[in-house]
Design a protein around this nucleic acid. Structure first.
Lengths: 151, 151
DNA sequence: AATGAAATCCGAGTCCG
DNA sequence: CGGACTCGGATTTCATT
């Protein structure tokens, strides 16, 4: 399934501000309000847009600390094993196997650095984990398409 | 900044579906529609809620390739400059300044590897970018709290 | 100070050409 | 797809506790 340029611009406009009126978005992409609505409805029906949310300041929710953790596994650890090992941690927001030296990148939200440290120690202690390498997020610059939002 | 119980429930309701009417949310938390609106306005003013977005399915949009890009900047590049430089790329889903050697981590969705290569070249060509280091996502293991791709 | 009821107004949703 | 109409909910006003 492929979207044309118009749909993409509409999704992008909604990603920035889902409260903009159809007429407003239409003025930007060159369509009338009903035309924009029809396309949004279609995007919802096909599952390209899965819903509407608020962007929340994680700090306001008490999740002050965010981190990316690279995980280096012992040989022959399957992606499924990594997944099973990580999904027990509620602090893990996202995890993916990746190219490069590390085997997986894990995105973690913790209440504070102390909380993060505890989580990291437990993950590092998992039998399939050889070693880890973390970077802490200093300040979130951009957050679109619902990416990386807790709760 | 701290949220009381009512605010928390309102934020939670909006996080699930930001299109619900104020009256509907009010019925759930025990307030009238205007009362809910006033609290949402206040949450927006204080920055607890930073905006309204759509949740999108990257695959349905044809964004099959996902990558994490570490950006190393020239000296004296402010976070704001990085943000301004990156927000023009619709392919950028998230960006954060981080601890460690790199200055920022950027999460990118592209149609395919070729598309990603083009985007990376353009980002690497930005005046504030010294060099970049990328890892491609092989398979998304976990995606929670609306992080990345909400299936 | 924060609330709910009533009134207004704008935009979503619908129908038609 | 655009234009026009209708209707629901957002937003405002105001009285109340």
């Amino acid at each position: 399934m492929s979207l044309n340029d118009l749909d993409e611009r509409i999704v992008h406009a909604l990603a920035e501000d889902a409260r903009r009126s159809y007429a407003d978005i239409g003025a930007e992409v060159g369509l009338s309000a009903p035309a924009v609505k029809r396309r949004v409805d279609r995007l919802l029906a096909t599952g390209a847009i899965t819903g509407f949310t608020v962007r929340v300041d994680p700090a306001a929710l008490g999740w002050e600390t965010e981190a990316f953790v690279e995980i280096y596994c012992r040989h022959k650890t399957s992606p499924e094993a990594i997944k099973r090992g990580l999904e027990r941690y509620p602090e893990v927001a996202a995890a993916s196997t990746v190219t490069g030296e590390a085997d997986a990148v894990v995105q973690i939200y913790a209440e504070d650095v102390r909380h993060f440290e505890r989580v990291l120690e437990r993950i590092a202690g998992e039998p399939f984990v050889e070693r880890t390498k973390s970077v802490l997020v200093l300040s979130p610059l951009l957050r679109r398409y619902g990416a990386g939002a807790p709760a």
